[in-house]
């Protein structure tokens, strides 16, 4: 009996450790390859015999656009989209959760229903619309097209609304008795109480925008505007057999995600999933 329990325990931990190796080793491998010289690339040593920073020198300097430019574009686009989502989703989420106005429920169901429209259906008409608006060009106004496409997220509006519903009404009533109007109540009472969900929206939006390949590959025209994933797609073709620089881009583009992941994990695990599954 005891042996059986022990065996089960070993088997259990064995599975867990094996699977986590399965998820971690590929990332370690990309790190290792990025500092390998060309002749070691296909050798199966994890620690390079002759580590070199050549790949990093290449992606920071030689390639056009270089890593700092790709990084700056990714960061700029992701930050603007995060701010847009925070503003629009909190305004709409609060109105849908707490304010009474004619047409509210119809609007909310439209937002929910729109989640079924795939981005790929929007591709052609959005592209045509942006061409008409003169936003498909080499100029910086090209960024505006990305911001417009990504400005509204039905999922984030939904997430915010669900959270505002859980904030006790007594807080609001107390503010009202003190003579605060709806706008003041929103700014002074509701927003400070909604920080956890704001963090969730910010992290998920940042990760989603940072990782997105679809819209940048369609909208961004000038190499000066490329984002990291789009840059990886382009350079993968150019550098077909020179893996270390590509692996350096892979490592460098994953680091910010790793950072948001480490600092923001608790918000994602407890919030997003709680509200979408439990309600």
């Amino acid at each position: 009996m005891i042996n059986m329990a022990k065996f089960r325990r070993y088997f259990f931990y064995g599975t867990l450790i094996a699977y986590s190796a399965f998820t971690i080793v590929p990332f370690l491998w990309s790190l290792s390859t990025s500092i390998k010289p060309q002749d070691e690339v296909y050798q199966s040593n994890l620690i390079p015999h002759n580590p070199t920073a050549r790949a990093y020198a290449t992606v920071f300097g030689k390639i056009q656009p270089n890593f700092p430019s790709l990084f700056a574009n990714s960061l700029f686009i992701a930050c603007v989209v995060v701010i847009l989502h925070l503003i629009f989703a909190s305004l709409a989420g609060y109105a849908f959760a707490r304010l009474r106005f004619p047409g509210r429920d119809v609007l909310f169901y439209l937002v929910l229903g729109s989640m079924m429209i795939p981005d790929q259906l929007r591709l052609v008409p959005i592209y045509q619309l942006m061409v008409k608006m003169g936003l498909i060009s080499d100029r910086p106004s090209n960024y505006l097209a990305i911001f417009l496409v990504k400005a509204i997220s039905a999922a984030d509006i939904f997430l915010m609304r669900q959270y505002f519903l859980t904030i006790p009404r007594e807080l609001e009533d107390a503010a009202k008795i003190d003579g605060a109007g709806p706008v003041q109540t929103f700014v002074r009472i509701m927003l400070p109480n909604a920080m956890p969900v704001m963090a969730t929206v910010a992290i998920l939006t940042f990760q989603g925008t940072w990782n997105d390949l679809f819209w940048p590959s369609i909208i961004l025209q000038s190499p000066n505007h490329w984002t990291l994933p789009f840059g990886i797609l382009q350079f993968k073709g150019q550098f077909s057999t020179d893996w270390p620089p590509i692996m350096a881009l892979v490592v460098l583009s994953t680091l910010p995600i790793l950072a948001t992941y480490i600092f923001g994990q608790r918000y994602i695990i407890n919030m997003q999933l709680g509200s979408s599954v439990k309600g």
Partner: peptide, 24 residues
């Protein structure tokens, strides 16, 4: 309250109607 409600949803829903429903 109704005016504030409409005010709050006006910009997000305006964008939403053009870029999601209209585009559809």
């Amino acid at each position: 309250e109704a005016l504030v409600g409409w005010g709050f949803v006006s910009i997000p829903m305006g964008l939403f109607f053009v870029l999601s429903i209209g585009i559809f």
